[in-house]
């Protein structure tokens, strides 16, 4: 693996984080300054999804050269890596975030609602239809996620089976590399890329479907929260790493 590829992969990620930050501030601006400008909200949500799509495409290309870099990226902290599912977030996280966001509104308005001082507000967070559609999407997403998890499990198990395990057993010297080894490992890597592609597809589709179900305002609210969370997780991990005395990840790109 040329070290240039890995550098490029890291740059791809760093640039993605920068895009996330830019999108976040733009979305946040729209949400706080002009929440009534529906067209703008829609357009920004779409833009943000397009950016995500671009990132996925780009890293997919790179992943063909060096897939393992994405399953355990050295540009993220070990803590962040421990949260990864197939080189990214679990798409089922989206639903937990939606429930958390809508829930906070419901609870804080409950007292007023029950006292009758604030009429008709409680329901505004999420309509019945939305709740049901989100539930349906959640179920579909979870079963897909489970399917991919099994696929990944099977691939990980393959390491201890023919042909890889037997090649290892037959080597005269531990860790010896040869053409046969390279070949089977490359082949295994290609299978991993396929799982990554499917997982990215699921993340992308779930996000798109979810944004379709949400109103533009809700969608932007969701995107702001999710981007902020992602950036926080990335930064928290690094800060905790520094406390533990781990070497700071090279920021150069």
């Amino acid at each position: 693996m040329a070290s240039g590829d890995r550098e490029e992969s890291k740059c791809c990620f760093k640039e993605w984080m920068t895009t996330q930050e830019e999108d976040l501030s733009e979305l946040f601006q729209a949400l706080t300054v002009e929440p009534e400008n529906i067209d703008q909200l829609k357009q920004l949500a779409e833009k943000s999804i397009t950016h995500f799509q671009d990132y996925i495409k780009r890293r997919n290309k790179l992943a063909h050269k060096d897939i393992s870099a994405y399953f355990a990226p050295n540009w993220c902290s070990p803590w962040e890596n421990s949260l990864l599912w197939v080189a990214g977030c679990r798409p089922s996280l989206f639903f937990r975030l939606v429930y958390a966001l809508s829930g906070s509104e419901v609870e804080s308005n409950l007292t007023e609602f029950l006292l009758g001082t604030k009429e008709g507000y409680l329901g505004e967070v999420m309509s019945s239809t939305q709740l049901l559609m989100i539930n349906a999407l959640q179920s579909k997403t979870i079963s897909e996620e489970e399917r991919l998890t099994m696929k990944l499990a099977a691939l990980q198990e393959d390491i201890a089976d023919q042909p890889i395990a037997m090649i290892a057993k037959g080597l005269s010297k531990v860790g010896e590399m040869n053409g046969e080894v390279e070949k089977v490992l490359d082949n295994h890597g290609r299978q991993m890329v396929k799982v990554l592609e499917e997982a990215d597809g699921l993340r992308m589709n779930t996000l798109k479907e979810l944004v379709k179900i949400l109103s533009p305002l809700q969608a932007v609210d969701f995107l702001v929260a999710s981007k902020k969370l992602h950036l926080c997780v990335h930064n928290w991990g690094r800060q905790r790493d520094q406390k533990l005395g781990r070497k700071e990840i090279d920021e150069e790109c």
Binding site: F113, L114, E119, G120, G123, E124
Partner: peptide, 22 residues
């Protein structure tokens, strides 16, 4: 609390917003 919430809805003081399709 459950009764309180249900009652408010039945009295029509609060309702979930309708989607256009509904």
């Amino acid at each position: 609390t459950a009764c309180g919430v249900a009652l408010m809805c039945l009295k029509g003081k609060a309702h979930a917003p309708a989607m256009e399709s509904e």
